[in-house]
Amino acid sequence: MTGALTQVPAGWVPLAAVLLLALAALGATVDGALAARAQGRHWGSGLGLPMAETARLLRQRRRRTVAADRPLWLIGTGGLLVVALLMVVVVPLGRWTLSDLPVGVVWFNAMDVVVWALVWLAGWGPNSAHSLVGGYRFLAQALAYELPLMFAITAPAVAAGSLAVGDVVAAQEGLWFAVWMPVAFLVFCGAVLAFSVRAPFSAPAGADLAGGVLADSSGIDRWLLLAGRWALMAAGSAFAVAVFLGGGHGPLLPAWLWSLVKTGALLAVLVWVRRRLPTVRPDRLLPFGWVVVLPLVLLQLLVVAVVVVVGGS
């Protein structure tokens, strides 16, 4: 469509899925290593954590709570991973993309809004007070982060004059958008942590709610929820790399490798951030999101728009 990217046939979809899962596993591995170090063990002892946890949950039975809303529970549980996979459909790997939608940015936005429904459903399904509160907490949190997220990803689109991710990547030849729209980039990174329910935005799955939306899930259900969260974080990082960190642009290495390296690095940074910060309660986050972050992002957008108009004329 846009010419900047090569659209690969749908047969490559499984490869994209595998890459996303591998990145998700990388995130979980980094997290395990950091956790081990925080507990006074050698960081290397935490590397096996994702595999051990997967084996544990594969062996563990599922639970069926009394009068649970099972269809909705299943949708919420399995949906997170599916949404993460759908997000990366528009994210290019170097020069290749699965589908170079002319509205790729909107597509990503739409997928991230689906997470609202899914996390809430995962909280609603088990008919459990803790997870129900967790689900509603996510909605409150979503009200705080969603608008800043939307305006943050509008900024690169304005700068590129296109909603196609390929054009946004192409427009960053020479100068990454993260450099001259840092506020939008940082806000987007925060939003990635928020829609993957990671600290400081982990209240919906908080320790104070016995795990919140996770409180009554076990076995493969729990695995799908956890894997979905890691995959969302990986997909968010991949999208951030495409629209803020220059996608495949970079010296020496091939473009596809640059995409992967940058995504892995950003993901590792986000994991580190999530371990450094305590959870912020949604009710404390909401006024901050609306009164401080939202105006900042709007100002960022104004700056970008003015630069584009002045530079273009």
């Binding site: 600290a199 400081p200 320790a207």
Partner: peptide
């Protein structure tokens, strides 16, 4: 307190 506040690493440090 740190555990309930959702800060696992600081809680681990305090417990150590």
């Amino acid at each position: 307190i740190l555990t309930v506040a959702g800060w696992a690493d600081a809680a681990a440090a305090a417990a150590r």
